[in-house]
Nucleic acid binder design. Structure first.
Length: 272
DNA sequence: ATGGTTGAGCGTCAA
């Protein structure tokens, strides 16, 4: 007997403080209707996680890993899941940048889901001068090694990867070649990670010759007019899921929400 | 070359 296919929508958003922007999640859900939502930069320690927020939004299954002040990831889900504990402590820093869950749809096989928040890497793209850049490169290398050693089936990886890998993932390739997020050492590292067995889901729908961004700095007076964006937020799927991709939605309108994040949500729909 | 803005949480640091 053949198992039923199910529509799965996975969204990712760097929310830049969950407690501050929890009210905006209503808009995200109205616009994207996700089944699963991966958040980054929740900036909330676990004991202070607002447990009532996901429940009120209709997402009864929740996992979170947060700390004081910085970082922090969370997964909100309509589908049940099991948290996969015992993953690596990336770069031995204990800094709350990754969650893995095993989604358990009632009518079809489980799906492995990863939520990542890759280190931003500071301002100077030189590991000798800037330890944060070294941390970023080490994180990317560790993640690549870890995924290379695992099988890749029915797997989705989403998050703020803090690298814009392609020429048209930034507003000016030439002007950003020495800017952290688009330096060759970073784009090469991210491409190697992708090549451990993933497909870039959004670029399946948006041609590589077309500019496509998910982040615009707060420091631009008129973000839409200057349009100096970068594509830092990604959804990747294992190759077996690539033919099942149905659409992507990058919710650019979210950049105009009141008191919003500098990142916008990205959502992918897959027939699983 | 510099500055521009935001959040956490009260110092500045991180982005």
């Amino acid at each position: 007997m053949r198992r039923a296919r199910r529509r799965l929508r996975v969204a990712t958003w760097n929310i830049n403080s969950l407690r501050l922007r929890a009210p905006l999640l209503h808009r995200l859900i109205d616009s994207l209707d996700p089944d699963v939502l991966c958040l980054q930069e929740t900036k909330v320690p676990d004991p202070l996680f607002p447990a009532d927020v996901p429940t009120a939004l209709g997402f009864p299954f929740v996992a979170f890993r947060g700390m004081k002040g910085y970082n922090g990831v969370a997964i909100l889900s309509r589908l049940p899941f099991e948290v996969q504990a015992g993953g690596p402590d990336w770069c031995s820093k204990g800094d709350c940048r990754h969650l893995e869950v095993r989604l358990l749809p009632p009518d079809t096989a489980p799906v492995e889901l990863h939520d990542f928040y890759v280190p931003a890497g500071g301002d100077v793209p030189d590991r000798a001068e800037n330890p944060k850049f070294g941390h970023k490169l080490d994180f990317l290398a560790e993640a690549t090694e870890w995924f290379a050693a695992r099988p890749r089936r029915r797997t989705i990886l989403a998050g703020d990867l803090n690298v814009a890998p392609l020429e048209h993932d930034v507003w000016s390739h030439r002007q950003l070649l020495k800017v952290v997020s688009h330096t060759p050492v970073e784009t090469t590292a991210l491409t190697r990670w992708l090549a451990t067995g993933f497909t870039d889901a959004v670029r399946r729908f948006v041609p590589e010759t077309e500019k496509h961004f998910t982040w615009w700095s707060y420091r631009n007076q008129d973000w839409r007019r200057s349009d100096r964006g970068r594509r830092l937020d990604h959804v990747w799927v294992s190759h077996d899921l690539a033919p099942r991709l149905k659409r992507q939605i990058t919710l650019k309108d979210a950049r105009d929400w009141p008191q919003t994040s500098d990142h916008v949500p990205v959502c992918v729909e897959i027939e699983i």
